[in-house]
C-alpha cells in the first residue's frame, strides 16, 4: 500500500514539479539554495500526502504546502548566500546606468522580488500564477479584503522601485 501510495505521489509530483520550482525561484537566488528548498518542499509534500484527501486539486494543495514550507517550515541552510538589503537595491537603481528597456525592467523587478518579505513573496508569486483573491485568501488563511490590501501594497512597492 505504501509503495503504491509513493508511486502515485511521485508521479503526481513529477507532473506538477513546475509549481515547486517556481516557488524555489521566488524564495532563493542561487542553484544550491534552490535545490535545498526543492528537497524540503518535496519531503513536506510527501509527509503531508496521506492527509491529502483529494478535496482540492493536487496542484492547489501543492501551492499550499510548498508556500508553507518556504515561509514557515524551511530553515535556510548555511550555504545560502546572504542577499544585500532592500535599500541598497533602491540606491543602485537610482544611481546606476538605468536602462528603460523591458529586459532591464524585468531584471530589476526580479531582483526587487528577492528582497521582499516572505509574505510579500508569497503574494507576488500567487499573483504571477494568476490566482484569484479567494484562492489567495484560502491559501494564506486571511480574508479576501486583507489579501487585496496586501497585494496592492506589494504591487505599489514594486512599482516604486521601477519608477523611483
Amino acid at each position: 500500500m505504501t509503495k503504491e501510495l509513493e508511486h502515485k505521489f511521485v508521479g503526481d509530483l513529477e507532473q506538477n514539479q513546475n509549481i515547486v520550482h517556481k516557488v524555489c525561484r521566488i524564495y532563493t537566488n542561487n542553484q544550491d539554495a534552490h535545490n535545498d528548498l526543492f528537497q524540503e518542499i518535496s519531503i513536506q509534500l510527501w509527509k503531508a500526502y496521506p492527509k491529502f484527501r483529494g478535496e482540492a486539486k493536487f496542484s492547489t494543495w501543492m501551492y499550499r504546502v510548498a508556500l508553507n514550507t518556504a515561509i514557515t517550515l524551511y530553515r535556510k541552510s548555511k550555504r545560502t548566500i546572504k542577499t544585500q538589503d532592500f535599500d541598497s537595491v533602491l540606491y543602485k537603481i537610482e544611481s546606476s546606468e538605468y536602462d528603460d528597456t523591458e529586459e532591464e525592467q524585468l531584471k530589476v523587478l526580479y531582483k526587487a522580488i528577492h528582497h521582499l518579505s516572505d509574505i510579500e513573496k508569497a503574494l507576488i508569486f500567487l499573483y504571477l500564477e494568476d490566482k484569484n483573491y479567494r484562492e489567495i485568501a484560502e491559501t494564506m488563511g486571511i480574508t479576501e479584503v486583507n489579501a487585496r490590501v496586501k497585494m496592492n501594497r506589494v504591487k505599489n512597492k514594486l512599482k516604486k522601485i521601477l519608477n523611483p
Binding site: 514550507t69 515561509i71 514557515t72 488563511g141
Partner: peptide, 10 residues
C-alpha cells in the same frame, strides 16, 4: 500540519 493554510500553520 503543512496541509493547513499559512495562518493556521503559524
Amino acid at each position: 500540519s503543512a496541509n493547513s493554510n499559512s495562518k493556521e500553520l503559524m
